[in-house]
Every structure is written in structure tokens, then in C-alpha cells.
Amino acid sequence: MTAEANTQHELFAMPEQRSLWQDALEQLMRNRLAIFGVFVALLLVFVSIFGPWLSPYDYTQQNLFRINEGPSLDHWLGTDGLGRDMLTRILHGARTAFLVGLIVTIGTTVLGVVLGAAGAFLGGWVDATVMRMADITMAFPDILLAAFISVVFREKVLELQLQIQEQYGWTLSESNRVYLDYLVIFGALTLVQWYGKARLVRGQILSLREKEFIEAERALGASNWTIILNHLVPNSLGPLIVSITVGFGGAMLSEASLSFLGVGIQPPGASWGEMISDSLGQWRFNPHLVLMPGIVLAIVVLGFNFLGDGLNDALNPEQRRR
């Protein structure tokens, strides 16, 4: 694209070209709330990668002589009911949140794009099947369905892991099975949240296909792939990016919700939702135990929502709110 633009530039001495992306970036940088979102997202990435090295404690390490403490020099954010360092657990919770956000977003995006595009291009029974599947998923109360799936499959995954361990002697970790919780959550949330992107992609393709510029391209004899790569993909990328950003925050929030209900990440794994429900009984006596993971979760979710909002304003100028 740039090479083409450059040659055009030389040949016709066109005025300075500004692409949608440059415009969008400029628009985004002007939005202070979106910048806050970018900052939060970057911080989350940093903490989830380097978190364990930022604190001297292990997230499962208990010290029963120092439980429910307030902030101190040793424990900057205090300790929880089992004497575990709150800061360490919050840092590790960031890793959980980020991992869930990343994998579930990849899963729903791949599923959504493939199914949505298949429905739009193939039409007929393929389209009907995809849309009915979306209708059915939408008919469920989403959190309850995800909770049900994770309860049912946790047991199955655990059995499978034990079988594998018996037969081949292979296991990731003898004592800590938190990684199985991750697997279950990834699956449950992907199954519940795929349909938004499928409907979005399908709708985008169907509406773009009817536009005059596509018709013109077709009349000029462009092949299907040229139209898809040069027009359909770039034009539907904006809404998809917004949906991915919002979905990322949504997936992290759903993980926290499931863990809060006791069907997500199980102790000793660290999740903000699980930390809140763990300390909820303490709100009268040690409010900071409930507040700290809550505030962190709120900031992260807000950051992603602001970022999604900012991206929407920047990338989809035609539907910008007044």
C-alpha cells in the first residue's frame, strides 16, 4: 500500500495524503480518556509479564503470624486472611486477567471472523446455521452458562489430566493445578462470547458488499480476492478493532465475575474476582482487603472501556456521537 502510494505521489504530485489510520491516531491522541486507557493497557501488559519479579514474595506464600494486616513497609498493600502479600496477589491477578483477556479475545476473534465471514460469503444453510447458533447462544443468561460450562468441564479436564499423568507420567505441576482452571475459563468464555464478533463481521461484509464502490470495482473486473483484501478487510477492520478492545475488557471482567462466584480461578490461584469474594466477609473489619483488588479491577475495566470508546470515535467517524 505504501509503495503504491509513493509511486502515485511521484507521478501525479498529489497533495499530502493522510490515511484513515493517521487521522484515527491523531483523533485518539486528542482523547485524554483514551490515553488513560492506553496507559492502563500498557501497564497491565508490563505487570502481567514482569509481575513476579516486582515483589519479593510468592503469590501462594502464607504467613499465618501476619494475617489481615494493613499496609506496611514489608507488605505495601497489607496481607490477606492467610497472611499472603496482597500486592503480590494483585500483581499475579493481573497476569490471570491479561492471559484470560488475550486468549479469549483471540479465540472469539478467530471463531467470530471465520463463522461470520463464512456465513456472509457462503450464504444458504451455512449462514442460517451460524445465525441460529448465535441466536441460541444469545438466548442464554451468559454468566450462568459460562459458570455451568466451567463447573461441568473442570471435572472432566481434571480427570483427563489425572489419566494422562497415570499413563505417561506427564504433568505440568503436581501441587498447583491452577493452569487447569485457566483452560476451563478460556473455553467457557470463548463459547459464550463468540457471537458478537461473528454477527459484526457478517453484518459488515453484507452491508459493504452492496456499496457502490464495490460494485464499481467488480465492474472493473477485480477478482474476489482483490475485493476482499483491498476493500472488505480494511473497511471492516475499524469496527472489529473496537469490538476486540471492548471484548478484551469484557473477557477480563467475566473471568473476575466467574471467580467472584466461585466457579472461575480456584484458590490458591490469584484472580481479582476471587480475592474480592475471599475477603467479602471481612468488609466491616478490614475493608482494604475488599477495596484493593476491587479498585484495581475497576481501573482496568474502565481503562479498556475508555480505550474502546476512543477507538470507536477515531476509527468509525461516520457514527461519531455528537
Binding site: F260, I276, L280, W283, G294, I295
Partner: peptide, 9 residues
Amino acid sequence: SIPAYVIGP
């Protein structure tokens, strides 16, 4: 944006 289990407490 903030979930009920944060606002509630």
C-alpha cells in the same frame, strides 16, 4: 463499567 461486586462493597 464497574461491576456490582466492586460498587457494592
